[in-house]
């Protein structure tokens, strides 16, 4: 089995932004966007997310798999839950409203009535802008952040060394464990084990992965003794750590951080002081369904 990181250097604008500034911006955006359903604010934030995504210069080919997963999630959340089954949309959308098809419609010669309202349809669009906006920001991370940068970044953002280094070490283990898993799978296959072939109930089916799970986990635990020794023997955790990975703020990073603060504070003020958090359908949207 192949486990590959998706990162490679693209010389994109994103590659020139300090990872710390990127995380700060991403979180500021996350907390800003989840405060409001106001159409203008959401549209503005969504536009910012699109610009941000474009700065990563991630090709469609690279990111396709991620987007497929996200489309699946968006589909089940928005199309299935909000539009088809018509959930109450978190108490955001007031009950009642204008039906999209007030007179019903005919399909295959039959007359149908369907309770989708214009308000709920707009709510679905707002949901899409919100979640897609967040996705646009965060889906970039695996493609544009060097796996060597995580430890240094989180440490410089204030996380204790040990925690920051845990992240770095986890990256180191992933390919080894993936290979161990493949070896264990082969070793058990050589003893006639067939993962796919299961009879029996749920418990039997779940327990079927024990011949894979147990050797892999126990082997990992046994090797951690050597690894902990190797770390202690090279002075781990005895002093404040420095990091090989160089992080350097440039003026544009400060601009980005300032912008992040303005964005978060601005949206918070608009929402709480000026009451711009509430859900509303823009007037022009009704005109589509006025007939």
């Amino acid at each position: 089995m192949l486990v590959a990181w998706n990162y490679h250097y693209r010389n994109s604008p994103m590659d020139h932004i300090d990872p710390r500034a990127r995380w700060i911006f991403s979180f500021a955006f996350l907390f800003a966007v989840t405060q409001t359903w106001n159409p203008q604010l959401l549209a503005g934030l969504f536009a910012i997310a699109l610009v941000w995504y474009a700065m990563g210069r991630v090709s469609w080919k690279d990111a396709r798999r991620g987007w497929l997963l996200i489309s699946f999630m968006l589909f089940s959340m928005i199309v299935v839950n909000t539009i088809i089954t018509g959930g109450g949309a978190g108490g955001v959308v007031p009950p009642g409203g204008q039906l999209v098809w007030p007179d019903g419609f005919s399909l295959f010669g039959r007359h149908l009535t369907y309770g989708l309202t214009v308000e709920r349809l707009w709510f679905a669009i707002s949901q899409l802008m919100r979640i897609l906006g967040i996705s646009l920001l965060f889906i970039l991370i695996p493609y544009t952040m060097d796996s060597r940068a995580y430890g240094a970044t989180f440490s410089k953002l204030g996380l204790p060394d040990r925690l920051a280094y845990t992240m770095e070490l986890a990256f180191r283990f992933i390919p080894s464990l993936a290979r161990n898993l493949a070896v264990t799978l082969d070793a058990q296959k050589a003893r006639g084990f067939e993962l796919e072939k299961v009879r029996g109930g749920l418990i039997k089916k779940i327990a079927r992965i024990a011949p894979l799970l147990i050797p892999l986990t126990m082997n990992a635990i046994l090797s951690s003794e050597d690894i902990a020794n190797a770390m202690d023997l090279r002075g781990f955790g005895q002093r404040k750590r420095t990091w090989l990975f160089a992080l350097q703020y440039h003026w544009w990073d400060w601009v980005l951080i300032a912008f992040s603060v303005v964005l978060l504070v601005g949206v918070t003020v608009l929402v709480h002081a000026l009451g711009m958090g509430g859900f509303a359908v823009p007037a022009w949207f009704y005109t589509f369904f006025a007939g």
Binding site: T166, L169, A170, F173, I174, A228
Partner: peptide
């Protein structure tokens, strides 16, 4: 140190599996 290793191995195992 040990806990750092266990935490990292646990995280990597969870991800890989």
């Amino acid at each position: 140190t040990r806990e750092v290793v266990y935490a990292a191995i646990g995280a990597a195992l969870y991800a890989v599996l």
